[in-house]
Write a protein that binds this DNA or RNA. Structure first.
Lengths: 185, 185
DNA sequence: GTCTATATCAAGATAGAC
DNA sequence: GTCTATCTTGATATAGAC
């Protein structure tokens, strides 16, 4: 944790891990500040409110996915199964990391009833996620089927994250990974 | 909302709906009190802490499921498909109700990293849920397959609840209901 | 850019009157 | 059993010195 001079980018990265672990409402500005090696007051130099930093966190996740993960689905140098495998692996890494569940899923469940501000971005992420998956599956299945399978994969993934948190194991997530992968030959 | 004389049971029922809608951390004791038509101070006459009332809420949900829903899975007067249909319908009603998502899933994601107290009961509910489903599916599938399918159904259900909240529609949930039901002939 | 100090407010929780 | 009043703590946010 830097004692002198940090920047917005670093803070967003750190905030992501804290929000993922504690959730939105259970994360205090002091938690974020501490994780960044800053005093509470200093934190406000970078972000004027908790809502705004969470918004930036979500946007940064989306940017990363758009840049590094979703394009995998359209990489024609990879065969269907290999493409799906790479996609799922990268997606898991991007969205989960060690412990604390899925930042996107967690934030959806926790805030979608209250914080309307987050909904558009969360929706977009899920939409792009599903359409990327659908694109891969469409290599092998008819359009309607591929769409349904993609939706199902995302839902099962989020359900698996929930179970993984409850049982403190990632075996469930690995099983879902294998099952999803088995859909492509 | 009663201005005079309520009781623990009523309060637990009301608290369930408030927690389901707002989540654990985003629900204040004053919210619970207000929903019960009580002053904050009066609320403490019934429950000494937020943690304890949530615990009672979860226990009440479990009791209800144990009494009214899980037994359906073992009702031999019903054929497989009819049994599954009744089970899924009752389960949805018990755990979801109008808006606010799934109290079990929400609480799992929101608190499982912090409030270890809730984990045992949440685990038990999921375990019994899955084994009830497995029992129905085992009428038609081999044991291992039935178990995996049951896990999958629960995960997909929770994923569908998440999507339903985000998109403000229960169509997704209905689709999952149909897909789950189609597993039995 | 970071700090300390502080204002403000809401939340969890308690005390005691009725 | 319910109320009002209050305590205490913790959280968001701001101000101003360094």
């Amino acid at each position: 944790m830097p004692l002198v001079k940090t920047n917005k980018e670093e803070i967003v990265k750190t905030a992501l891990t804290v929000f993922r672990k504690n959730g939105y409402y259970n994360t205090a500005m002091s938690d974020l500040a501490e994780a960044c090696g800053l005093q509470k007051g200093s934190f406000y130099h970078y972000f004027p409110s908790k809502e705004l930093i969470m918004a930036e966190v979500l946007i940064s996740v989306q940017s990363y996915l758009k840049e590094k993960v979703f394009p995998i689905a359209y990489d024609e140098s990879l065969q269907g199964k290999a493409r799906l495998e790479k996609f799922l692996l990268k997606m898991g890494k991007a969205i989960l990391q060690q412990d604390g569940g899925c930042i996107i899923g967690n934030t959806t469940l926790e805030t979608s009833g209250q914080k309307v501000v987050f909904k558009p971005i969360l929706k977009e992420i899920f939409e792009e996620w599903k359409s990327s998956l659908k694109h891969i599956l469409a290599l092998q299945y008819p359009d309607g089927t591929a769409g349904r399978m993609a939706d199902q994969m995302v839902m099962e993934f989020e359900g698996a994250v929930m179970m993984s948190q409850l049982y403190d194991t990632d075996q469930i997530l690995k099983d879902v990974f294998v099952r999803s992968l088995s859909k492509m030959r």
